[in-house]
């Protein structure tokens, strides 16, 4: 049975080329991959990474459990992250982590974690994931959230929990992307709102052929 992104309704209304990726149906490109690349380098793009694995860990031993997923995760400060190409551990609070991973890796990860010591929830289907890329993405954010996300204040590797277009979200900033993890049921509304304010700052939707999932290495 195929897994569908919360943006399946959006895909219907675009000349989108769909692809199957690890059991998920996801946008490969939105009809013009070349244009997407140009916007990625010059304007801003919005991609759908809803298919990535998302596991939440909470409880007083969440750090211990996080360490089981990626070495060093227990040492990171709240609101910071640790990542490699394939996964990222975001420390949300003292007692909460969100583990992101390439689609399909979540099953292995869930097995690695000692479920007795912490509350583990597979949030893969519960959460949508939209990704802003491109040099003008700051302008989209400046029209979207009351959070101060200046690049010299919120550096790569930071984690922010706040709201964007009145949707609660976790924002994970990497060097090249702002990854916005949010409730699945609001995904289409958030997409609409971002695209709406993105008019004028060169925001276009793009698929995973333009923006493949990568968590970039580093602390």
């Amino acid at each position: 049975m195929i897994k569908t992104s919360p943006l399946s309704g959006i895909y219907r209304n675009h000349p989108v080329k769909l692809t199957e990726f690890s059991g998920w149906q996801i946008a490969d490109n939105f009809g013009n991959a070349e244009r997407e690349l140009i916007h990625l380098s010059q304007g801003s793009v919005l991609a759908d990474w809803s298919h990535i694995g998302k596991i939440s860990l909470s409880g007083s031993d969440a750090a211990k459990a996080a360490e089981q997923t990626i070495t060093g995760a227990s040492k990171i400060e709240p609101l910071r992250s640790l990542s490699n190409q394939n996964m990222a551990a975001l420390r949300l609070t003292r007692n909460d982590y969100l583990i992101l991973c390439q689609s399909g890796m979540e099953t292995d990860l869930l097995e690695k974690i000692d479920h007795k010591i912490t509350t583990v929830i597979d949030q893969t289907g519960a959460l949508g994931c939209l990704v802003l890329g491109g040099p003008r993405r700051d302008e989209v954010l400046q029209r979207s959230t009351a959070m101060d996300l200046r690049r010299d204040r919120v550096i790569a590797g930071s984690v922010i929990q706040s709201s964007i277009h009145t949707v609660s979200m976790t924002l994970y900033r990497t060097k090249h992307f702002d990854i916005i993890i949010h409730p699945r049921n609001l995904s289409e509304s958030l997409y609409d709102a971002l695209m709406d304010v993105g008019i004028g700052v060169g925001l276009v939707p793009c698929g995973i052929s333009t923006v493949p999932v990568s968590f970039e290495e580093g602390k």
Partner: peptide
Amino acid sequence: GRAPHLSPIRRTPIHQCHI
């Protein structure tokens, strides 16, 4: 401002099927 600021719509995972 723009309408999306008002009260975002929540859709179930089956929304498209209903349509």
